[in-house]
Design a protein around this nucleic acid. Structure first.
Lengths: 130, 130
DNA sequence: TTTTGCCTTGCCGCGACGGCAAGGTCAAGA
DNA sequence: TCTTGACCTTGCCGTCGCGGCAAGGCAAAA
């Protein structure tokens, strides 16, 4: 199967698929004319990667997940640890963003937002005591 | 004032300060020996940038904010619009991350996480119906 | 035969810097 | 006075995960 079909079936751009090959994630066969030839297992791996990336796992994590996916004797604890670490990352990010939002919201709430130049947002950014 | 002191006062790495000069954000004077020479207003601008970046504004947005900051006749509405757009971005990101976390949490909850190979997380990523 | 469309490799670019190298400058101590 | 060490300069490459473009080869349709 050509890379175009693999792209459609996996939901990944062809460029991304080539990149995954370049970094050694999914190595398809080659036909005589040099075209990449994707097998069913290759497609499954690409779909797996597409979903894992969609859940925000880094390509590095995806590499580990993929090796676990292909290891019949993996321990599910190893997979769960990655998922929990990812959840912890997300929670950290959620806290940060929430805090940022609060700060911005407070600044914006105090700004009348008309054509006058007085602006508590800029005052806040400049470091003046609010 | 040398870049080292400017770095300490602004909380920005020297490399970042040089980068901001390179892209035309803060242009310090130069002394005879070629050293950058930061004035008080320069320091204020750097601190302003440090805070704005800390609130997650892109460098592009910071450029606009800085020009508004330096424009005595700005309309506060212009600043508020940027802040509200940034808040909307954050909210969007919060929704995405929250959804990701839910998905991951569900997968992780169903995974016993021991040394057996059965793993609902990998099954979920492989596209099997959960 | 020609066109059209897919495939190949390769290189540059992004954002916002970090790291390193090679060299110039300055202030302080021996 | 000399030297040391801290600071400064520019410049170039690397990051992460690709996107875009170019030049050229291959394949099926008109």
């Amino acid at each position: 199967m050509n890379i175009g079909s693999a792209s459609q079936l996996s939901g990944l751009p062809a460029k991304t698929i080539r990149y995954y090959e370049e970094i050694g994630l999914v190595a398809p066969g080659r036909r005589d004319n040099g075209y990449r030839d994707y097998s069913e297992p290759d497609i499954h791996k690409l779909r797996f990667l597409q979903r894992a990336r969609g859940l925000g796992f880094s390509v590095h994590d995806c590499r580990i997940l993929l090796s676990l996916y292909e290891d019949e004797h993996r321990a599910s604890a190893d997979v769960k640890a990655l998922a929990l670490a990812r959840i912890a990352d997300i929670e950290q990010k959620l806290r940060e963003l929430h805090s940022l939002k609060e700060t911005l919201q407070t600044l914006a709430d105090n700004c009348h937002g008309d054509d006058r130049p007085e602006c508590p947002i800029l005052d806040g950014l400049s470091g003046e005591p609010v």
